[in-house]
Amino acid sequence: MTEQELKIIKCQNLKQKPSKDQIPFGRTFTDHMFIMDYETEKGWYDPRIIPYAPLTLDPAAMIFHYGQTVFEGLKAYKTQENSILMFRPEKNLQRLNLSSERLRIPKIDEEQVMGYLKELIRLEKDWVPSTPGTSLYIRPFIIATESNLAVAPSESYKFMIILSPVGSYFPGGIEPVVINVEDQFTRAVKGGTGMAKTAGNYSSGYQAQANAKEAGNADVLWLDGVHKKYIEEVGSMNIFFKINGEVVTPELNGSILKGITRMSIIELLNKWNIPVAERKVSIDELYQAYENGQLEEVFGTGTAAVISPVGELNWLGRKMVINNHEIGELSQRLYDTITGIQQGNLEDTQEWTVEVE
């Protein structure tokens, strides 16, 4: 992909920004968005920032029929000095290309797209909230746009980035959540698309999540699709367990998303000399650890929630109450460290943040 000049068309009618203390997750969008197109003969072309607006697509656009799409989620934060930081954005663009490869979508030039993203955020800098616990959520995504009902990869695509000021993902913020262990439905299997960040992975979990929420749970914990025995991840997060002093998380096996926050947590634990292992974890092993009083903490990790402590796991009518529904010492330390780095309140010795301006 050759270097291309970014065109910018500014919005004339700016939106009213949400109240600083009432920012819902993912429902409010900024004034502008980024778009770039792809055609087989031309490659990626025409990068532009334009006013946020609906798209016009042919009813036969392949995204509607075969779900050929990938996306990412990352955040920008405003520091006390009024600068704007992104957290490990290069990892998200790398993962976007990994997902694209799995879905037979042409790769983007990560360095160029990083430049386009920075320009978009600079233009929308007033949308980055500064209230503690808030951020600007960044959603890059690619959709197949060719008008064709043949079952084959599209010959044309749109790559877009939209921005949304957000508060906490879970209504309770950092309060421990209740999770249901899903024993009926399957999210993904090795060899499928579980390792890619693609739309179908999420909608296929909606029925299980709806059932869980009707029973008073915040989300579901998925088990492997073959044995219905080994723990994989939560619907919106990777998962960690502190068992008898050691932190354990399911190993990446081709059906688990390679989380950026997950990666960062493992690197922090290694730096702190806290034992951490990536391996198979069965639900039976976890329940046995609970029965033995060795299950000390459980927490999920992800861009949206950062760290989400789990206060209770429900499995086949059995309840595992963790740490008396209170956030654990390690979970709190990890949350404070990650968010402190993201918001510029702690020194970034890991070189994880990228300054926009």
Rank of each mutant, 00 (worst) to 15 (best):
V166H: 01
P171W: 01
G172C: 08
G173H: 00
P176E: 00
V178W: 06
I179M: 05
V181P: 11
D183G: 00
F185T: 03
T186N: 08
T186W: 00
R187C: 14
A188H: 04
A188S: 14
V189M: 09
V189Q: 04
K190M: 08
K190Q: 11
G192M: 04
G192P: 06
G194C: 12
G194M: 09
M195A: 15
N201D: 13
Y202D: 11
S203A: 15
S203E: 10
Y206S: 05
Y206M: 14
Y206G: 00
Q207N: 13
Q207S: 12
A210G: 08
A210T: 12
A212D: 12
K213S: 06
E214V: 00
N217V: 00
N217G: 00
D219L: 04
D219T: 11
L221I: 03
W222M: 11
D224F: 01
D224C: 00
V226E: 10
V226M: 01
V226T: 05
H227Q: 10
K228Q: 12
K229S: 13
Y230C: 02
Y230T: 12
I231T: 05
V234C: 15
S236R: 03
N238S: 11
F240M: 01
K242P: 08
I243T: 12
I243P: 13
I243W: 10
N244R: 10
E246H: 09
E246A: 14
V247Q: 07
T249K: 05
P250E: 04
E251V: 11
N253F: 07
N253A: 13
K258H: 13
G259A: 03
G259Y: 03
M263C: 04
I265Q: 02
I265C: 06
L269P: 09
K271P: 05
K271A: 14
K271R: 14
N273A: 12
N273H: 15
V276D: 02
K280T: 07
S282A: 05
S282P: 01
I283A: 13
D284V: 10
L286E: 03
Y287C: 08
Q288K: 13
N292S: 06
Q294T: 03
Q294V: 01
L295C: 07
E297P: 10
V298K: 02
T301F: 06
T303F: 15
T303Y: 15
A304K: 10
A305S: 15
I307F: 05
S308M: 10
S308R: 06
P309T: 03
P309C: 02
